[in-house]
Computed example of a mutant assay.
Amino acid sequence: MENATGYRRSAGSARGETRRRELLATITDDVAENGLVDFSLRRAAKSAGTTHKVLLYHFESAEDLLRQVVFSLRERRIGNALTAVAASSASLTDRVRAAWVSLRDEESALRRVLDQAMGLAMYDPGRYAALGRGASQQYLPTLVSFCPPDWPEQRKFEVASMILATLRGFLVDLLTSADGDSAAAGFEALLRAVEREEAAP
């Protein structure tokens, strides 16, 4: 099988999949440490100790590799949030509070890279739109799972969407403000809105 560049592609053998995962993990660690600026197949290959041709054997393109790297980093973020939520009470309000603390206090390198990914999606949507669309698709199921199980699915989706959009705005505020006071104040208002949702019939 060949990709768009004409290089032979891995056909999905168990051995090939194991190697693909190893490469992805190594490159993801590099991006987490060094960011997305100047990301390229050659830089990724260097960090993984291989060649760009080998990467094109396992990934469709530089964009495909970047998409999978960002997906992996978001999985780390979600895993951190779920760990924090597991230690909280069963209420949606407490789960949102625990998830926000995890997001607010996460390592700056992880936040920086995921912010850069959203920046790329906005700067060049023709090439990187998938980085932006993938975020909501990845985060929403987790937030839906925080909602009371007896809620109708549409209500879960609506409330989870509100929480996601608001928390993303707070992350931008943390990135662009010196003290984070407005994000903290806004978050308290969000918690009150979530409490009202929980109290509603």
Rank of each mutant, 00 (worst) to 15 (best):
S108E: 09
S13L: 10
E63R: 15
P125Q: 10
A44P: 03
A130D: 04
E106L: 06
E63A: 12
R42H: 10
L92S: 03
S91L: 02
V172D: 11
E158W: 11
Y57G: 02
L110A: 10
G35A: 08
V144D: 13
D115C: 11
E197K: 08
A25M: 11
L175W: 05
R8H: 13
D64L: 13
G119D: 14
L140E: 06
A48M: 08
L143A: 08
D64C: 05
L65M: 09
A84W: 01
G6E: 11
E198K: 00
V96K: 02
A200G: 13
S102I: 04
R168H: 10
T26Q: 11
L41G: 00
M1Y: 09
R104F: 01
S47Y: 12
A183D: 07
T28F: 07
A183E: 00
R9L: 12
Y123S: 04
V159I: 15
Y123K: 06
S91H: 02
S47I: 00
E60C: 06
E153M: 10
R155G: 05
K46D: 10
P152H: 13
A99I: 03
A109M: 10
T176A: 11
S40A: 08
L120S: 06
D181T: 14
T28S: 09
V101G: 01
F59C: 09
F59N: 07
M162T: 04
L190D: 12
K46R: 00
N34C: 10
A87D: 02
W151L: 08
E158N: 15
S13H: 15
A45I: 01
S88C: 02
E63L: 03
T18A: 15
Y57K: 01
T142M: 12
L131S: 01
L73Y: 11
V85H: 03
A14E: 10
